[in-house]
Design a protein around this nucleic acid. Structure first.
Lengths: 123, 123
DNA sequence: TTGACATATTCCCATATAGGTATATTATTC
DNA sequence: GAATAATATACCTATATGGGAATATGTCAA
C-alpha cells in the first residue's frame, strides 16, 4: 500500500502546509481563484490543484459566477481534527503545568539564595 | 517534489489513521511494544515502524528497560494542530448555529400549522 | 467568430511512502 | 556460547503525490 490519499479526509488534506495556507488565506471570505492566487503569490495551477483537494474533502465550496469561481471555506470537517487532538489536551497542559511548577520552584530557590547573600546596594 | 515527509511535523504524522490509533492505544500509559502490538492486533514490525515516525516528530518518547522498550506519548506537538484548527472554530459553530436556527424555525412553523388543524384525539 | 479572460486539467518526474516478509540487532537466561 | 525473547531494520512493490510547464475548457465581449 502507499500512503493514504490526500483526499481521504481532512487529516490528510491539511497535512500539506500549502493547503493550510489556502484555508488561512480564505478565512471567512469568499474569494475568486485569481484573488487567492494574488494573495498567495503562487502560480495559478498550483492554487487550482490544492483547491481541488480541499474541495474533495469538503473543506471548501465553490460557486461559479459568470467567468469566475468563488471559493469559500467550509470549516466543518476541521471539527474532527480539532476534537481528536482535544482528547489529548490534558496531557500537554499537565506537561506545561510541570514546566511552570519547576520554573516557580527554581525562582523560589533563587530568591532564597538571594536573601541569604550579604546585602548589596540596590540602584 | 513529492509529498511532505510523514516525519516533517505532527500534521503529517497524524494524517495516517494507524498512527492516531497508536496514540489512542497509548493514551496516558507507558507501554512496551509487545503490549501495544497485542492491544492493536497488528504485526509487530508495523507497530515498530509507526512508532518510529511518531518518535521522529516527538509524539512519543522511549525508555529501554532491559529487553523491553517502553513508549509513552508526548502530546505537546499536538498543540500546534489543535490550535491551528481552533482558529476556525467559530466558522463551524456559526454553521451549527444556522442549522439549529433553521431547525427551530421549522419546528415553530410546524407547530403553527398543527394549531390551525381541527382538533384531534390525543392518546 | 475571434479574442481575451478565468480556471482547470494533463503530462512528466522525483520521491516517499505503507504493508508484507524476512532478517538483523540487542539483551537475557541457561 | 546457544537458545530465546523483544524490538528494529532491510528489502520489495504498488501507488499517490507536488511542482512545473503546457494546454484545455469555459465564459463573456466585440
Amino acid at each position: 500500500m502507499a500512503r493514504a490519499a490526500t483526499t481521504l479526509d481532512a487529516f490528510n488534506a491539511i497535512a500539506e502546509k500549502r493547503r493550510r495556507d489556502v484555508l488561512e488565506a480564505l478565512g471567512g471570505r469568499r474569494m475568486a481563484v485569481n484573488d487567492l492566487t494574488q494573495r498567495l503569490g503562487w502560480p495559478q495551477p498550483m492554487v487550482s490543484k490544492h483547491l481541488r483537494v480541499l474541495r474533495r474533502v469538503g473543506l471548501v465550496r465553490v460557486q461559479r459566477q459568470s467567468r469566475r469561481k468563488f471559493y469559500e471555506m467550509n470549516a466543518e470537517p476541521l471539527r474532527a481534527v480539532h476534537e481528536w487532538t482535544r482528547q489529548f489536551e490534558r496531557f500537554w497542559t499537565e506537561h506545561l503545568q510541570q514546566i511552570k511548577q519547576r520554573a516557580e520552584a527554581s525562582a523560589r530557590a533563587k530568591e532564597l539564595k538571594e536573601s541569604n547573600k550579604p546585602k548589596e546596594n540596590r540602584s
